[in-house]
Design a binder for these strands. Structure first.
Length: 291
DNA sequence: ACCCAGGCGACGA
DNA sequence: TCGTCGCATGGG
């Protein structure tokens, strides 16, 4: 049984009736930093976002019938890039039914039912979460945008949009070269990541398959990569859905709701559960009420 | 003016 | 191994 009904309409690909898919939930919940809301161009569209991922520009909308429209997308790009990027092979309705056995997770999934965990490019996720430390999401997005504009490549047919720079494009870059990003003390961490990935001291190719502890230790050889940044890179960039990044918000969640650890029903879906809980804690004033 | 932001490294006990 | 502190930058 297909998880989602997908049809091709002229130049668009459309997910039919996808209630577990909200653009604002997915693209504005602190997991990715390159998508921005734009004015919908059709009265039927509830929300429209555009951005760049995996070296490709994408504009997508949700309409008033809960269809998700991938605008002007080829079959090759949809199946080769976006199907994986938006985790379309995972049945989020099923995952939510499982984790909702827990009351807090039930509230969290009600609060933002359209969250999904993206499968982003690993290098971009690593750099993005190096930048994220002691920083806020708005400024992270600005730094990542300048990183792409200053060192990436214009996208074909969308020359005002830029791909995220590859390690090869950044070879030899010094912290001073990164000054235009205004990344502050994180510039030297980015430079170290560039150096260690280009030298092969850290091999990104292995991180999807290595035992989790080894993968984390590998990433933490990079200056500025500790347990939290490593877990975020592994979860969002290397498909390690068992990762459970503990930032300040998640530490509050654990202390308040789960002093004895994550409930059993969520353990098989730790990364996804984390995303619902993180977003709930950060955006719902009721999250910690009565605690 | 102050405080904080999806942490981390350096340092001292 | 543990706690504490400084860190660049910019928005509220």
């Amino acid at each position: 049984m297909p998880i989602l009904d997908i049809v091709c309409k002229e130049n668009d690909y459309v997910l039919l009736n996808a209630p577990d898919f909200s653009l604002v939930n997915i693209l504005d919940c602190g997991q990715c930093f390159r998508f921005y809301p734009i004015e919908p161009q059709c009265s039927e569209y509830i929300e429209t976002y555009e951005g760049v991922a995996m070296g490709h520009y994408l504009k997508l909308s949700r309409d008033n019938a809960n269809n998700i429209i991938f605008h002007n997308t080829t079959k090759e790009d949809f199946l080769g890039i976006w199907k994986s990027y938006f985790d379309l092979d995972t049945d989020y309705a099923f995952v939510k039914r499982c984790i909702r056995e827990d009351d807090v997770l039930a509230r969290a999934t009600d609060h933002a039912p359209g969250i999904r965990v993206l499968h982003q490019d690993g290098w971009e996720a690593l750099c993005s979460f190096i930048i994220s430390q002691n920083n806020n999401i708005k400024r992270i997005k600005g730094i990542v945008a300048r990183f792409s504009e200053d060192f990436g490549t214009p996208i074909e047919d969308y020359p005002t949009h830029y791909s995220f720079p590859t390690p090869a494009q950044l070879a030899g870059i010094t912290p001073d070269d990164l000054a235009p990003l205004r990344a502050g003390f994180r510039a030297k961490y980015l430079a170290d990541a560039i150096e260690k990935v280009n030298s092969g001291e850290v091999n990104l190719e292995l991180l999807s398959s290595l035992p989790l502890e080894e993968a984390r230790e590998n990433l933490m050889k990079i200056k500025g990569v500790g347990p939290k940044v490593a877990d975020c890179a592994l979860l969002y960039g290397f498909g390690r859905m068992e990762c459970f990044p503990l930032d300040v918000w998640m530490k509050r969640v654990m202390a308040n709701f789960y002093p004895d650890g994550l409930p059993e029903c969520a353990k098989a879906y730790a990364g996804i559960a984390q995303q619902y809980l993180f977003h709930y804690a950060r955006t719902s004033p009721e999250a910690f009420e009565g605690i």
